[in-house]
């Protein structure tokens, strides 16, 4: 039994979720509460990974991370075909799910509550941290769970930018694909069941936690 793909999958999905939390929450706040030129463009671009085939996305990411890209040539970051590239791919694919759900949650917070906080002297960061985000937390958590689930199942874009190197960049979905291709159905079965159990456990736990948290 090979444990590595499962551990790698959880590691990649967790890290991707952290990235999505930071980037996605920032984008959601920006899109929900600010009007600026190009608002619709940003909103559309953020949502693009939802409709683009993962291979197209992977192709773009190859350009962004690969030879000749600013990331590699100027910053000297070379993560292509490492597990870090899988994190980038998963985060990109999961981002719109986070942005959409948390943006809707933030928009549903009564703007008068934020205005009241401002008239009470609270600086903008306190308004966001103590009023907006706590009241939108259900949507934000829902967005994170969706993002994590999506990252865990990521296949196409990951294959293109991180490859399928057993023991290095092979996540569970890739491993299952390989096993099925080489007709090792029994081993594939184990991974499929494990993946299902882990996904179920996470969703079930979050659901329970959420229900008990708010009243």
């Amino acid at each position: 039994m090979q444990w590595h793909p499962l551990i790698l999958s959880l590691q990649v999905a967790s890290l991707a979720t952290v990235v999505v939390l930071i980037v996605g929450l920032g984008l959601a706040l920006l899109l929900a509460r600010r009007r600026f030129p190009g608002h619709t463009v940003v909103d559309t671009v953020v949502n693009l990974p939802l409709v683009l085939p993962p291979s197209v996305l992977g192709f773009y990411l190859l350009f962004v991370l690969g030879r000749g890209s600013p990331v590699k040539e100027w910053l000297g970051i070379d993560i292509l075909f490492t597990w870090m590239a899988a994190v980038v791919a998963s985060a990109t694919v999961a981002l719109p799910l986070m942005v959409r759900t948390s943006k809707a949650a933030i928009e549903s917070v009564d703007p008068n509550l934020e205005k009241a906080a401002r008239t009470l002297g609270a600086p903008e960061w306190r308004v966001i941290k103590e009023v907006t985000l706590p009241l939108a937390r259900r949507g934000i958590i829902a967005g994170l769970v969706l993002a994590f689930a999506r990252a865990l199942g990521e296949f196409g874009a990951t294959l293109m930018v991180a490859g399928n190197i057993p023991g290095r960049t092979q996540t569970v979905p890739l491993a299952i694909y390989d096993l099925v291709q080489s007709n090792r159905v029994r081993e594939a079965n184990v991974l499929v069941l494990l993946m299902t159990a882990v996904s179920f456990a996470i969703l079930w736990g979050v659901n329970r936690w959420q229900r008990s948290w708010w009243r």
């Binding site: 008239t119 009023v131 009241l135």
Partner: peptide
């Protein structure tokens, strides 16, 4: 900005922080 005006505002729906 409103933070610096020291103007108290009681909103029509009270706008109490529910949490």
């Amino acid at each position: 900005p409103p933070q610096k005006r020291r103007v108290g505002y009681v909103f029509q729906d009270y706008a109490l922080f529910p949490h």
